[in-house]
Structure formats: structure tokens, C-alpha cells
């Protein structure tokens, strides 16, 4: 049945893709395009492009889209549920372990090492999106302006994003 198939395929994607975001795309592509032929390559590229212009986790976007295309709204629901379920099981188990043992000195010691690395992780992610995000003097100006607005004037991030989107519409369309 298509619903089971969608659920299981996206369960597999949710279970075996690490890193979130674009890091999940190769596995999604393999399952959707190569293994199941639910989309051809150009349709898959469209899904990625749509994910870039719509909010939310990319894996959820892909699951919803492919599910809908194959089997309507219920297909969407089956695929989305499939991609989320491994997170629920695996991450919940890890969280239970962490909350149980995080007062141990060894765990604390490990996390004093992990925390600075996570800061580096976010910094590296920021670095990684810079070339594709800042490509002109005006986009550099938006970035600097947004930074000042957030830090100096405590502008809400969502408001900042909406203002930048409005500015983009005026400047780039």
C-alpha cells in the first residue's frame, strides 16, 4: 500500500540522515528518485527549490510534497509522520539518558568540551551560508543593517526577517 510505503521510506530517511537541513538531501534524493522513482531528477530539484522558498525543516517539506504527489493529503501525512517518528524515538531516548546522567562528573566534563564545539558548529554554519547569501553590496548592507537592528535595537528576529523580505522585494524584483 502506498501509505505504508511512504511512511516506511520516510522513516528510513528520518532514521539514517544526520545533520539536518541540506545534509539530508542526498539520502532523500536516493530514496525518492533512485530507489522509488517517485520523482524524476528535475522534479526533485523543484522540490528543493520550493523548500528554499517555504519555511520549515527541509525534510518535512520534502516529505509533505512527495507524499501529496503520490497519494494526496493522507500520503502527505503518512510521509511526514514517517520522517518525524525516528526523531521522536531516538532523540527521546537520548534525552532520557542525558537527563538521567548529566549530573555525573564525566558527562559534565564531556559537555564542557562539547559546548565550545557547538558554538563553532553554529559559526561554521553561518560561514557556510555567507557566499550564497551575501552576493552584492546591497545584500551586505542588509546583513550589516540587520545585525545592528538585532544587537543595538533588539529588533525581533521575525520582524527583522519580514523587513528584510520587504526590502528584498523592493530591491531585487
Amino acid at each position: 500500500m502506498i501509505y505504508t510505503q511512504l511512511f516506511l521510506t520516510f522513516f528510513k530517511i528520518g532514521l539514517f540522515s544526520f545533520g539536518g537541513g541540506y545534509a539530508m538531501l542526498p539520502l532523500i534524493q536516493k530514496e525518492i528518485v533512485t530507489n522509488n522513482s517517485w520523482l524524476n531528477l528535475s522534479q526533485f530539484v523543484d522540490v528543493v527549490a520550493i523548500s528554499q522558498v517555504t519555511p520549515g525543516p527541509i525534510a518535512i517539506n520534502a516529505a509533505t510534497f512527495v507524499g501529496y504527489k503520490m497519494a494526496g493529503i493522507f500520503g502527505s501525512a503518512a510521509a511526514t509522520l514517517g520522517v518525524v517518528t525516528p526523531s521522536l524515538i531516538v532523540v527521546l531516548s537520548l534525552t532520557l539518558l542525558f537527563l538521567k546522567y548529566n549530573t555525573l562528573d564525566t558527562v559534565q566534563a564531556a559537555f564542557t568540551g562539547i559546548r565550545p564545539a557547538v558554538v563553532a558548529l553554529i559559526a561554521a554554519a553561518t560561514w557556510g551560508i555567507m557566499p550564497s547569501s551575501i552576493q552584492s553590496v546591497s545584500s551586505l548592507a542588509i546583513s550589516v543593517g540587520a545585525f545592528i537592528a538585532i544587537r543595538r535595537f533588539h529588533l525581533d528576529p521575525i520582524v527583522t526577517l519580514l523587513l528584510a523580505a520587504g526590502l528584498g522585494t523592493v530591491l531585487y524584483s
Partner: peptide, 18 residues
């Protein structure tokens, strides 16, 4: 166009979070 405007702001948000 809206997204082209939004992307540099996302960089700023992330840098601020760092």
C-alpha cells in the same frame, strides 16, 4: 526577490546567535 533580501538577514541572525 523577498528571499534574496531575507538571506543576508539570516546570516546576521546566526552571527548574532553565535
Amino acid at each position: 526577490a523577498a528571499l534574496t533580501g531575507m538571506r543576508p538577514a539570516i546570516v546576521a541572525l546566526m552571527a548574532s546567535a553565535v
